[in-house]
Design a protein around this nucleic acid. Sequence first.
DNA 1: TCCGATAAAATTGTCGGACAATAATGCCGG
DNA 2: CCGGCATTATTGTCCGACAATTTTATCGGA
Lengths: 222, 222
Amino acid sequence: MTESPLSAAENASTVETVVAAITEGVRSGLLAPGQRLVEADFTRRLGVGRSSVREAFRRLTADGLLAFVPHRGVSVRQLTRGEVDNLFDIRGALEALAVRLALPRLDRAALAALQARLDAAEAAGDMAAFSACNREWHALFPAAAANPQLAAMIAGLGNSIYWLQFRVLVDRDRTFATNAEHRAVTAAVLAGDAEAAERAMRAHVDGSRRLIQSLPDSCFAA
Amino acid sequence: MTESPLSAAENASTVETVVAAITEGVRSGLLAPGQRLVEADFTRRLGVGRSSVREAFRRLTADGLLAFVPHRGVSVRQLTRGEVDNLFDIRGALEALAVRLALPRLDRAALAALQARLDAAEAAGDMAAFSACNREWHALFPAAAANPQLAAMIAGLGNSIYWLQFRVLVDRDRTFATNAEHRAVTAAVLAGDAEAAERAMRAHVDGSRRLIQSLPDSCFAA
DNA sequence: TCCGATAAAATTGTCGGACAATAATGCCGG
DNA sequence: CCGGCATTATTGTCCGACAATTTTATCGGA
């Protein structure tokens, strides 16, 4: 997870270099969703052996970033509308769990951090800053939950739907709605009301789901 | 996911053969938890190349069955008490979600199947049969939920804690308790009460958690 | 004897080549 | 225009090799 965005050929192993390169390509849009990735391509362009490329492919497949079909190689994963919906069901349950687990463990500093991200998101000028604040706010709960496996799962879900994230959030109304939902969760957390916090987080995930589902068919796989 | 229990060397690819062999070894206890697996060992014993063994290792690592450390290879995964507890938190949330999603989709046949597994579990003579019925009963919900990703996640969690399963359930009292918990979930499902069914499933998972946590330290990793 | 440092062995990480198996592509006759 | 066949491209698997790293064995000194 979370490598430095560029220059990955420093202290990392060869396969991690490849993993970083592909991740970068997918996130930057250079590798389009559904696009097929050919081993020989990467061996040449990156100057590494086939072993490393194949292992990187497999690792990214396990992470949900690539899709693998026997005898046909891997391609940048693209989900159907139904699969995205399925993932949002799971995400709702896991994020709610993260909030419930995190709540009794949030100290004064963590609560302040929550509030800070909220304020920063509201004050953000551009979409990149807004998106970054949101991600950081979301990550605070899994981090505080003292459950690394849960955090990894939530991060994995985020990977799977990342390619959709930067098609939305360009909507001014939605930023306001998102801020409001985040405020509702934060308020419940500050009040120490686990039930309400869970409910608010589920509602927030559902809001995000509805937004994503409103995208045109062209954003999804067949 | 879900391979045929035996005779895996027939129509499958080489790496699937290796995967099946290792899975069998772990499940049968031939490969003890924490035991290190050496590539050269399997290349010789199974008569396959290093590529296949390495890929099988990676695939099983992604599945949670093996643990991987760079430059030190893989070993049969063994979890600490805390990690098991973390997984049970996740499992509770996901199984509850599976029940909620499955409930409106269970037709007459599925409900009958639920009841049948329940009855079979109560009538089971030996532990193996009892355990099998329980697994089948549990699997009905993810299957009916029409959410393959959720089913895969729950199956993965099951893999991670499988090595503990056959250390318990040797307790006569616990079989009764398990049956009672399963009956409670089934009853709520038959009544169409999603809230109660979710609660009952959470309670069941927690019962299983308590049982596992009562095992001695020797069953867990450091 | 016990301990730490060094040397040897074992194991993994990566490369390159090779070939069979399978899928994708193009050609050609109908 | 279409179906069947040959060609090509790509993946699946094996092999051998060597560097990097870890583990084990050896040995000298306190």
